[in-house]
Amino acid sequence: MSEHIVSPKIYLGIFAALMILTATTVYAATVDLNEHFPGLNVIVALVIATCKAILVILFFMHAYYSSKRTKLIIFSGFFWLAIMLALTLSDYGSRTWDLH
């Protein structure tokens, strides 16, 4: 497995992108997006966070350049998290009563 050296230019670019996304998410939180679509504020915040996370994983953590095996392992971590969240929320979302 030959090592891929990521150049500092890319790191700086990613850092800039992360800063812009951070500014965007802070700004988006101060605007009422929910009036356009219920829950849009949360969706925007999480989508931006996910974009940031993906940038960090792909470039800072070199996942973009790593083997399929490593990619599979990363994927399985998030996939299992998704199983846990989705199946648990499927219970809460489909209840015909409210426990609280």
């Binding site: 939180a29 999480l46 996370a53």
Partner: peptide, 14 residues
């Protein structure tokens, strides 16, 4: 932290 920040700090700031 990238997730904690919006989840804990940015709920309905408007």
């Amino acid at each position: 932290w990238i997730y904690l920040f919006p989840l804990l700090y940015l709920i309905d700031r408007h």
